[in-house]
Each structure stands twice: as structure tokens, then as C-alpha cells.
């Protein structure tokens, strides 16, 4: 029934293939930026390097396997008068087996060494080497918005983050809502935002620009709205921005207005000229039962923490402890 001439069919095949490939290439490379592969800060840069190194190491095994698969499947397909050998009972070779236990082991050892080194180097709570003193931003994940507190400046914003370029930023991250994750792909990897915890993440922007920030861990109905722009600006612009926000005294966060802010809902970008002192630690430690963990060694700086840090010391060796018992008191 299909009586199209052969050349027409070939033409259709070629056109369809080319259009498909064209759409694919256009979609892959010309519609959006590969944020993770286009970092604008030292943390993201190192993570990109690591991604490339590990991909290449994996390819050492993967590419030969894929080629081998194609060759074997083609060469040993069953057809009359096939020339390739057929040895139905050959099922054991110590040499070959040693090779393919050995090669993956070597690759994995190499990967393990690289991974371990980078894991220590890129521990999120480790400060970034820089001449400037880091700026601190306290991040609170709410239902369904991000609250950013600038304790040094006593200003706050919602769903928009402004940071000075070239200066390390020390993010202290918590949540007053279900767990979320704080992610600015072009500056570096994410870390969870959890109630009753304060996590520390150091990032730095090396270029002026606006970067995409997002919540990365599902936190309920309007989770998709938890996006924010990160404006990395020059130090001078940053200072004048701070002054501008401070000057606009009509909008402040008070204890009462915070309670409203924390209620589930969606909102746009907002700036606040002040917020109550100690708001962050009040949020981060609001669930601590009085007296509990009072003699815990994690509470030496006067703040108390809940749960895992003291009851399960095995799990708390990194972030959690460094976030809570480090000498810098949370504001």
C-alpha cells in the first residue's frame, strides 16, 4: 500500500532526521544557559572542575564498553554462513576476569581519591580564603518564600538577595517551614534549610550580575514559587543599596509582622529597613524545649540546639556542629 518512490522516502527520512537533530541541538544549546557549567564564583568553579574530572574518569570505562557492546552484538548475531567463531562452552577466563575486576577497581580508587580531596576542600561550612571579611546573610525558608536577614546592616529582604561582588558571603540557613534547600547554581552547590538547625554555607560571586536562585527541596503546595534573584553588585553599589533600604523606613519587620510573613502564602520581592534583633536565632531554635540539652557540650555558646546534635553525636560531626557551636554567636 505504501507506494511512494524510493527517492521521496529517502528525502522524507533525511528531512525528518535533520529537523529532529536541529530542534534537539537548538534546545540543548541555544535556549538556556547551563548554569552549573557556567559558574561565577570559586565554589561553583571548583565543583565544575570536579564534575568534568569525574566525567572523564568514568568515560575511560564507559566508552570502551559501549563500543565493545556494539561490536559484539553485531559480530556475533546469528545468521547463516557467519564467519565469527562459536564456542558454546567457553565460560571462564581468569585473565579476562582479572582485567575487568581490576580496571574498575583502579578507576574507582582514582575517583575516590579525587572525591575525598574535594569533599574536604568544598565542605560548605569552610570559609573561603579572601582578604575581605565575609558578609553574613541569614536565610530563612518559609512557606513559600525566602527571607534574607542582613544582621550587620539590620535590613531584610524577601525573595531577592543582594550581595557584594568579590566578597565571600557567609550564609546561615534555617527554616520556619518544612525542609527546603538553598541553591544558587552559578555560585555553588546547595545545602538544606531545616527547622531547628542552622547550616553554614560560604559562597562568593566573582562577577557583577544577576543569578538564578531557587529552593531545591519540595516543601509543599507552592514550592515552585520559591525562586529568587541574586544581584551581585559592586561594593559601592552594595553600600548605596543598603542605605536605600535603610532609608525606606515605611516597611519593617516586627515580631507581629514576622508572624504574618511566616504564614503559608506566596509573595513578590520586598525590602525591609529593619528587623528585631535575634530574630534568626529565635526562629532557628524555637522548638528547643527549655532545659533539655542544657549541659550538652554543643551549647557552649549559649544557644541551644535540638535533637540530633547532642542525642546522636555520630551524625553531627560536620555542618550541624560547626553551625551551632562555632565561636561566632548567631545574632
Amino acid at each position: 500500500m505504501d507506494k511512494k518512490p524510493r527517492s521521496l522516502r529517502t528525502l522524507i527520512t533525511v528531512v525528518v532526521t535533520l529537523v529532529t537533530l536541529g530542534v534537539l541541538i537548538w534546545g540543548m544549546f541555544f535556549t538556556a544557559d547551563y548554569l552549573v557549567l557556567n559558574p561565577k564564583g570559586p565554589v561553583g568553579q571548583s565543583e565544575k572542575e570536579l564534575i568534568i574530572i569525574t566525567t572523564l574518569l568514568c568515560c575511560v570505562v564507559i566508552v570502551p564498553v559501549l563500543i565493545l557492546t556494539a561490536v559484539i552484538v553485531w559480530r556475533y548475531r546469528d545468521k547463516p554462513n557467519r564467519k565469527a567463531a562459536y564456542s558454546p562452552n567457553w565460560h571462564d577466563s581468569k585473565v579476562l576476569e582479572t582485567v575487568w575486576w581490576g580496571v574498575p577497581i583502579i578507576i574507582i580508587i582514582a575517583l575516590a581519591v579525587v572525591t575525598a580531596r574535594y569533599t574536604y576542600a568544598l565542605e560548605p561550612s569552610k570559609p573561603i580564603d579572601a582578604e575581605q571579611k565575609p558578609v553574613t546573610v541569614q536565610v530563612v525558608s518559609l512557606d513559600w518564600k525566602w527571607l534574607f536577614l542582613y544582621p550587620d546592616e539590620n535590613i531584610a529582604t524577601v525573595n531577592t538577595l543582594t550581595i557584594p561582588e568579590g566578597v565571600p558571603v557567609r550564609f546561615e540557613i534555617t527554616a520556619d517551614a518544612p525542609m527546603n534547600s538553598f541553591w544558587i547554581p552559578q555560585l555553588g552547590g546547595q545545602i538544606y534549610a531545616m527547622s531547628g538547625m542552622s547550616m553554614t554555607l560560604y559562597l562568593k560571586a566573582d562577577e557583577v550580575g544577576t543569578y538564578f536562585g531557587t529552593g531545591a527541596n519540595f516543601s509543599g503546595e507552592h514550592f515552585a514559587q520559591m525562586r529568587f534573584d541574586v544581584n551581585a553588585v559592586s561594593q559601592a553599589d552594595y553600600d548605596s543599596w543598603v542605605q536605600k533600604v535603610k532609608g525606606n523606613t515605611g516597611s519593617t519587620i516586627t515580631e507581629a509582622s514576622y508572624a504574618d510573613l511566616a504564614k503559608p502564602g506566596v509573595m513578590g520581592e520586598t525590602e525591609y529597613s529593619s528587623f528585631p534583633e535575634g530574630l534568626y536565632s529565635k526562629i532557628a531554635y524555637k522548638y528547643v524545649v527549655d532545659g533539655e540539652n542544657a549541659d550538652s557540650e554543643d551549647s557552649t555558646d549559649g544557644t541551644k540546639q535540638e535533637g540530633m546534635g547532642s542525642s546522636l553525636p555520630g551524625f553531627s560531626s560536620g555542618q550541624v556542629t560547626s553551625g551551632l557551636s562555632a565561636s561566632q554567636p548567631v545574632q
Binding site: V65, A112, G318
Partner: peptide, 26 residues
């Protein structure tokens, strides 16, 4: 890994995870 267990724990579990790739590759 992003829950902040610290480099010791993350490195341990990263390596155990990779180890599974060996028998699977075989």
C-alpha cells in the same frame, strides 16, 4: 549529602557508593 553531615561522613558514603559500581561493572 546536602544535609550537612560534614566532610568525613560525606567522603565515606561517597566512596561506598562508588564501590557498588565495581561488581556492577563486572
Amino acid at each position: 549529602f546536602t544535609m550537612g553531615s560534614g566532610a568525613d561522613i560525606n567522603a565515606f558514603f561517597a566512596i561506598t557508593t562508588m564501590i557498588i559500581a565495581i561488581p556492577t561493572g563486572v
